[in-house]
Design a binder for these strands. Structure first.
Length: 273
DNA sequence: AAGCCAACCTGGACGC
DNA sequence: TGCGTCCAGGTTGGCT
């Protein structure tokens, strides 16, 4: 379940691995995973070189002259870099063969909220990127506060709304709320500006730590670009995520788990108000 | 307009 | 051991 830190880690590794490399062939194994653009627009990447790989929110963006290839990893997406002669594993949807004998493969078993978008250069259509709010790591505190302070909905659901804030998923929203001492159910307009400011600081802090933790595993000589973010999750200390029923690390109170807006939320009923 | 919620999908964990 | 059930979660679109 890659969120912003995992997408950044993947993009950084991928950039280091494929920038300047030429595309020899493109094979779309599952037509329905191409969400915008056509197979024809995908073929235009052949004989071109990758300029850059970066991210927008949770999306990994590969840049080349024919445009941008936007990979929406969704719940279970991975980008695998492997020798072209290696067998193709199940749930491989897109294979980009490089002229140096490697493949970049998009693999995704659960295809929820996942897909590939081709955005031609100069096009007004930004696909899924068009509706994204500011990057969670870059939004200034004042803008964060003004975007949230008058809303009536639960803070947790606002943090998860990618049109307000790009890149925050279920894990880091829970962690940021825990660090800031705010209950996930609390209405945005019932949180003081100073506490929203603290939440902004907590969010940036936890995302920054996670990005740093993902980067720390760059050193290993793993031929795969691991996109499930697992290393990152284990490297970062979790106060609440996945710890429902266990004691709060700060006060010892049993952490409570509840479903909010269709997703699980864990919080400390004593520390978070 | 803002916000809520179901639907999408499949591997893995868990219970009997 | 094996089967069934449930859960995880990002995004969209339809509804209120």
């Amino acid at each position: 379940m890659p969120e912003l830190p995992e997408a950044r880690t993947i993009a950084r590794r991928l950039h280091a691995a494929i920038a300047g490399c030429e595309v020899a062939a493109v094979r779309l194994c599952r037509r329905d995973m191409l969400k915008s653009g056509s197979p024809r627009s995908l073929r235009r990447f052949v004989a071109q070189r990758w300029d850059r790989v970066d991210t927008r929110g949770k999306y990994v963006v590969l840049h080349a002259r024919p445009g941008r290839l936007v990979v929406q990893l969704g719940m279970s997406g991975r980008l695998v870099l492997t020798e072209s002669r290696q067998p193709i594993q199940p749930h491989t949807h897109l294979i980009i063969t490089l002229s140096d004998g490697r493949d970049l493969r998009s693999v995704n078993p659960r295809r929820i909220a996942a897909g590939v978008h081709v955005l031609p250069p100069g096009s007004d259509d930004l696909g899924p990127l068009a509706v994204l709010g500011p990057e969670a790591t870059d939004i200034p505190p004042a803008e964060f506060i003004s975007a949230l302070r008058s809303r009536r909905r639960a803070i947790k659901s606002a943090l998860l709304d990618s049109s307000l804030l790009a890149g925050v998923g279920n894990i880091y929203s829970d962690e940021a709320l825990a660090r800031a001492g705010i209950r996930p159910t609390r209405r945005c307009d019932r949180i003081s500006p100073s506490r929203l400011r603290a939440l902004h600081a907590s969010l940036v802090e936890v995302l920054t730590e996670a990005i740093a933790a993902g980067g720390s595993s760059l050193a290993d000589a793993n031929p795969f670009v691991d996109a499930d973010g697992r290393e990152g999750y284990f490297a970062v200390h979790h106060r609440v995520y996945g710890r429902g029923g266990q004691p709060c690390t700060a006060c010892g109170e049993v952490l409570r788990r509840m479903v909010l807006g269709g997703r699980s939320s864990t919080f400390c009923p004593r520390c978070q108000r």
